[in-house]
Design a protein around this nucleic acid. Sequence first.
DNA 1: CCAGGAAATGTTAGTAACTAACATTGCGTC
DNA 2: GACGCAATGTTAGTTACTAACATTTCCTGG
Lengths: 188, 188
Amino acid sequence: MTTPRAERTRARLQACALELFTAQGYDATTVEQIATAAGVSHMTFFRHFPTKESVLVEDPYDPLIAEAVRAQPTDLPPLERVRRGLLGAWSAVPPPVDAETRKRVSIMAVHPGLRAKAWENNQRTEQVIVEALMAAGTSRLEATVAAGACLGAIMAALVQWGTTDDDAPLGAYIVTAMTQLDPTGGPR
Amino acid sequence: MTTPRAERTRARLQACALELFTAQGYDATTVEQIATAAGVSHMTFFRHFPTKESVLVEDPYDPLIAEAVRAQPTDLPPLERVRRGLLGAWSAVPPPVDAETRKRVSIMAVHPGLRAKAWENNQRTEQVIVEALMAAGTSRLEATVAAGACLGAIMAALVQWGTTDDDAPLGAYIVTAMTQLDPTGGPR
DNA sequence: CCAGGAAATGTTAGTAACTAACATTGCGTC
DNA sequence: GACGCAATGTTAGTTACTAACATTTCCTGG
């Protein structure tokens, strides 16, 4: 039900923000500047994005991931279920990764504060995975640890992908990360 | 070389902060209030702690961890080296965990923003582990993923310990977390 | 005991990310 | 073309944090 006008200003804000961030750096860019560049006031910015960082992130894949984890056979250990679930979710519905995505990740990857904020998002994903596991009888501690480990690994891979020059696809990094958590050592 | 006077005000600030946080919540407590409670100005607060959150955290164990990881046999896979290193560092020099520590962790555990900030600290630890692994010839990607996975698991265990009522020692949670990453399934 | 100097703290003024309350403008519908 | 609601603007705050400079406190040597 989002109005087309709102959607346009939202996109404009995102584009201007990305441009300014790459041009002069994240910290050196103020919300006021972004808003002005997009032709709106700073209040409008905050109506579309709750925080300055949120203009860089968006990640509506949580339900998908939860489903993929839930679909794993319950006789596997929790860590393995999360590992296969994440891998499966990725290969089933690979999110679009374009040049803009890369730019966004790059900005985040080199900025400790932003990486931390990105982790805040991860926490929501973690919650979702934990619930999926607990629904199958796993204890909360085991579930949280399994989710934390896998997401920690994926986050690390994401940051690496964002800082390297090499133009391998993000998917390759994700697969590497998850394979490393394979107790069998995975395919060699 | 820290002067005794400075050390005392630092401690006073920490104590007052903890008290106010537990009494009225982290967000509802202003730095000004903490400073006033400690009998100093807000500038003094920031001279001792770079940010508001930093009054809750401190974690000078990075060198220890790096050493423990470095000491692992290099023919083990990276993840296993980190896993054993962290487990070893913990059992070798368990940090003092008192009621105050628990209070601090509790405050952090229920506050998403604070958890994210705590992750910012983790990143420094991650860096240290990555360097230790790379010194033994591991690729940066593999090293980062191994460190990210283990720290993600430990972080998850820490948060669980901070939110549960059960008074099991933190060490038990850490061991559980690391055991879950054991590819052999660990001791049953 | 007191003077000198450095470390710790205070004062003041400023920036930037947010928030709340209320006014205004644009845009589709009847 | 008026009406009504969503999107935006204005204004005035609060709070974390920084910089520059003034002041106090405390230790040390004479």
